[in-house]
Amino acid sequence: MQTTILANIPSPPQGVWYLGPIPLRAYAICIMIGILLALWVTHRRYTARGGDADMVWDAAIVAIPAGIIGGRLYHVITDNDKYFCDTCNPVDALNVTAGGLGIWGAVALGAVAVAALFRWKKVPLAPFADAVAPGIILGQAVGRLGNWFNQEIYGRPTDVPWALDIFYRVDDNGEFAPLTGTSTGEVITSVHPTFLYELLWNLLIFALLILIDRRFRLAQGSIFALYVAGYTLGRFWIELMRDDSATMILGQRVNTWVSAIVFLAAVAVFLWLQRRRRAVVNETE
């Protein structure tokens, strides 16, 4: 019996191009576009609230490098077997351009760096956090396209019409090179495009954050808490669909646990912020 595939999503034939000796990596380009979009959204939202535009650029100066370092640290720690084994080269842990940035570490260390900056400059952090939240998740959505080019962050094999075809890629010597090589046209497998699921989920959360911020009067810091809760809720069910190698804890992927724990923490913070706001309002009446 022959199975006819009606329509599959193809992977890009390659994720790296060369301008002479200079490699142009799609993953890095997507990350940079995502950062620029996040900055644009944050600048508009923060200045509309009366914030100082210079604080946006100051925050970017500390958040971007801190985010890259934090994201890489999280990835290396949770996937340490890829870099520290008998046949591994530990130096590869520093090769950010090959992919591997954990959003958890990026947001966490980036947030710490920005919080330290605002504390040093004696500027309230919560209004900026609410302004930056939609921009962050929009940037994350664009960044997921980098995973598409790298043929990574995908789910289990499937025959759904929107399945993602993973191509066999080789380098100039004909050796298997999934990240840096060029497609031979051979399809290795067809899988759930979890990168696309997360991209679409992030766009949905972006739209909801903008809508909620316009429609409701919430305590300062609430939009950022909702961003964290919304993202981790989606990441939880998407992680359950993934089939690539990952560190496992009690039978579940480490990011599944992190998603659940951070989601509960974000919801608790959101509720606490609303309770504190109501208490302040009652005291002033």
Rank of each mutant, 00 (worst) to 15 (best):
D79T: 06
A129P: 08
V96N: 04
L209W: 09
P157R: 02
A246H: 12
R278E: 14
D86M: 08
G102I: 04
T247S: 11
M1S: 13
I153E: 05
A163H: 02
P10Q: 05
T97E: 13
D81C: 02
A106G: 15
A48L: 03
R253F: 04
V123G: 01
D165A: 14
I103S: 09
G234W: 08
A265D: 09
I223T: 15
W17P: 06
V262T: 15
Q2H: 12
D244W: 00
R169M: 01
A38R: 01
T3G: 01
L209M: 05
F224Q: 03
I22R: 07
R144S: 02
W17V: 10
A115T: 14
V123E: 10
F236D: 04
G99E: 10
L94K: 04
L208A: 12
N255L: 11
M55Y: 10
V170H: 08
P124H: 13
Y168Q: 12
V267P: 06
V41A: 06
I153N: 08
L36E: 12
P127Q: 10
L226P: 06
A260M: 13
D52R: 14
P124W: 10
N173T: 12
V254P: 01
R277C: 02
D52F: 05
W57T: 14
R169P: 10
L199A: 09
Y227K: 07
P157F: 00
R144F: 01
A66E: 11
V91L: 15
P21V: 08
T232K: 09
E239H: 02
G102C: 05
L109P: 07
E175D: 14
P10E: 03
Y197S: 00
A131Y: 09
G15D: 04
V142N: 02
A53F: 00
T42D: 04
I136W: 03
W257M: 08
A108M: 11
T78Y: 00
F118W: 10
G34W: 10
A48W: 02
A126F: 11
W162R: 00
Q140E: 14
G100E: 08
Y74H: 13
A131K: 06
P13Y: 11
T247H: 11
N173K: 11
E285A: 13
W257Y: 09
D172M: 12
A225F: 04
M248G: 03
V262W: 01
V132S: 09
A177Q: 05
